[in-house]
Design a binder for these strands. Structure first.
Length: 590
RNA sequence: GGCCCUAUAGUUCAAGGGAUAGAACGGAAGUUUCCUAAACUUUAAAUACAGGUUCGAGUCCUGUUGGGGCUACCA
């Protein structure tokens, strides 16, 4: 039972009895620490309604509740706030309910299907820190939506074709000497990325050389032979040239192996992967349809556009004058195909905020075309990850590579662990697993605790913290809980939620846990893993204070001891559920 | 130029229009015969500026300034 809803209902009953109406929007909030009580009713709006002062209104409502609701133990009115204290029995009941609910924090099926697209990498270079934010966000939001009862389909759209991959292919042909991931021992995506850089180097050399012969910069950039070769290669690819196609398949397969390894490290997964090489033509049907409906128009040179000037947006190109399609065309086509495949209630694109405009236009065009589901398309827009010196730039070599970063985090976790020396009796393999859990926990929490829509900062020189508001802090809290519970089990002690009256400290923890489902719901509607992260930190912090002040195993009263064990079990469970929504594992020892 | 996002302690982040703006890191000072000190306790330190709406504004509105992004026949 949701505490806020419960109290809300009781107050509604009260208003009805006192003032004879039922249509009041009530404002309830958690009582602040410095006041006595559990839940607070804000009285200003209500005072207008009752026609009395906030203080009088509060007193009336308080007295009614105390007299008519057994669960209300006490109340006080401070300024315009009615603080309500609920009974010990009420909180004990809450604890029992949490203990009895295996799926605490998960909602029953909503009947909705939500598709979440995330990751969507290009195949010409390895993943970097920006992709990490995308992947973690997408995966976590998917988990959160599942917890809210929706059926979720996670999809990836791989950009496997285009001029960028041709550049890598060409450089490999010219300079590669047949190098493969097997022959060189390099990870496939990194290998292909190296040739992309190699292409750029040669390209720049040629541009400079041309400029020395007196060609203007703009012209030189177009005329560089290696670029023209790449463009030619793209044409051959589109014509289905066997040699080009074989090379393309080979190099992409290297990249996929590399991506899969990174995805596995990150712990993210997909239900379905789409490839642009298979979807890039899909939009052409829509173009025909749009022309027929008069939603699109053709210019003299044959290019096709959609006029959105009435919507405060420019005209948007959908088909080039040479008849080839663009990004938007493709997205229109894939959206329609996906809807026909899954008839989703919602399609969420997890894509950086530099594409806000693109998705605004995508939605508008689908609406103009008359698709009823255009309203179900949403862009989960997140901010860039910036370095102290600004944006990451591959040209300047400031890109933070995903694999390097992950490896670095695991290494730091190892160092810290070994320094603390608590794992001397742990098997080597188990230790490796733990370092990975902690290192990735630190990384994931660092990224996910920030509100998605905000630009965030990452400083490679300062390693990500393992103390304070961090993943390892919460993991450590969990490990402590497990440690106590292990010892209790050795002593054959059974947890029991209802064994005794709750102490004040215990009530505080129960209160915090009882708020968890609402946090899950809010994180779901706001698509914000950060809310879950902050909640988990608050709960862990509160628990650590409790742990410091209150001994469980040394408690003499057996019933109280059993109840505290039940409390610990539930705090551990809630922490574990919360962190799993972020894709973070909690170790039983560390 | 137009459109969008953003501005909170030295730094990185919180704060459903509500009470004295919370944390963490870093700084200063402490806690270990006590269930894991990756912890706990104490302490200094912030709402860019100017108006407005409201009983009440970090939060909503307008303007100014700073930061970022978009405004491609790239994706």
């Amino acid at each position: 039972m949701n505490v806020e809803l419960y109290v809300n209902q009781k107050v509604v009953d009260c208003i009805k009895a006192l003032y004879g109406s039922e249509n009041v929007a009530l404002q309830l909030q958690k009582t602040r620490k410095e006041f006595e009580g559990d839940i607070t009713l804000v009285l200003f709006a209500l005072a207008k309604f009752s026609g009395k002062s906030p203080e009088e209104t509060g007193a009336e409502v308080g007295e009614w509740l105390a007299a008519n609701v057994p669960q209300v133990e006490a109340f006080n009115v401070v300024k315009g706030f009615l603080n309500i204290k609920l009974s010990n029995a009420f909180w004990r009941e809450q604890l029992s309910q949490i203990a009895g609910d295996e799926a605490f924090g998960h909602f029953p099926p909503s009947g909705k299907t939500v598709m979440v697209e995330y990751s969507s990498p290009n195949t010409n270079k390895p993943l970097h820190l920006g992709h990490i934010r995308n992947n973690l966000l997408g995966y976590s939001v998917a988990k959160i939506l599942e917890a809210n009862g929706h059926k979720v389909i996670k999809v990836n759209l791989v950009n496997d074709r285009g001029i960028h991959i041709c550049k890598s292919m060409l450089a490999w042909q010219k300079f590669g000497n047949g190098e493969t991931p097997q022959s060189s021992g390099k990870k496939g995506d990194h290998l292909v990325g190296e040739y992309y850089v190699r292409f750029d180097k040669e390209y720049k050399r040629q541009v400079t050389a041309l400029m020395h012969t007196g060609v203007a910069e703009d012209e030189a950039k177009k005329q560089a032979p290696i670029l023209q070769e790449a463009q030619n290669m793209l044409l051959l690819w589109e014509q289905g040239n066997d040699d080009v196609f074989d090379l393309w398949e080979d190099m992409n397969s290297w990249v996929y192996e590399g991506f899969d390894a990174t995805y596995r490290q990150l712990g993210v997964s997909f239900d379905k992967t789409y490839y642009e090489s298979k979807t890039y033509l899909l939009g052409k049907e829509i173009v025909k349809e749009g022309l027929k409906k008069g939603v699109f128009f053709k210019k003299e040179d044959g290019s096709v556009w959609c006029d959105l000037t009435d919507n405060g947006v420019d005209q948007k190109l959908l088909l080039r004058s040479d008849g080839t399609s663009v990004y938007m065309t493709q997205d229109l086509g894939t959206a329609r195909q996906r809807f026909s495949e899954y008839s989703f209630s919602e399609l969420i694109y997890v894509v950086g905020d530099e594409q806000n405009y693109h998705f605004q236009v995508l939605k508008l065009i689908l609406k103009k075309l008359g698709y009823a589901w255009s309203g179900s398309i949403n862009h989960l827009s997140y901010g860039m990850v910036e370095l102290p010196e600004g944006k990451m730039k591959s040209r300047e070599g400031t890109v933070v590579d995903a694999d390097d970063l992950i490896a670095g985090m695991i290494a730091t976790a190892r160092e810290t662990s070994l320094e603390l020396g608590k794992l001397t009796d742990m098997a080597e393999e188990e230790q490796q697993q733990l370092f990975r859990t902690v290192g990735l926990g630190a990384l994931k929490y660092f990224i996910l605790k920030v509100d998605p829509k905000k630009t965030m900062l990452f400083d490679p020189k300062e390693s990500i913290d393992f103390n304070g508001n961090t993943g390892p802090f919460i993991q450590y809290t969990f490990a402590r809980i497990c440690s106590v519970l292990r010892k209790a089990q050795e002593q054959q002690l059974e947890p029991s939620a209802a064994a005794a009256e709750l102490g004040e400290r215990e009530v505080e923890l129960v209160k915090s846990m009882a708020a968890f489902p609402q946090v899950v719901a809010q994180a779901g509607t706001e698509r914000s893993p950060a809310l879950i992260a902050n909640y988990a930190f608050e709960l862990a912090k509160e628990f650590n204070q409790y742990y410091h002040d209150v001994s469980v195993l040394k408690e003499e009263n057996a019933a109280v001891k059993q109840q505290r064990l039940a409390l610990l079990t539930q705090v551990g469970k809630v922490l574990k559920t919360a962190m799993s929504l972020l894709g973070i594992e909690l170790p039983e020892r560390m």
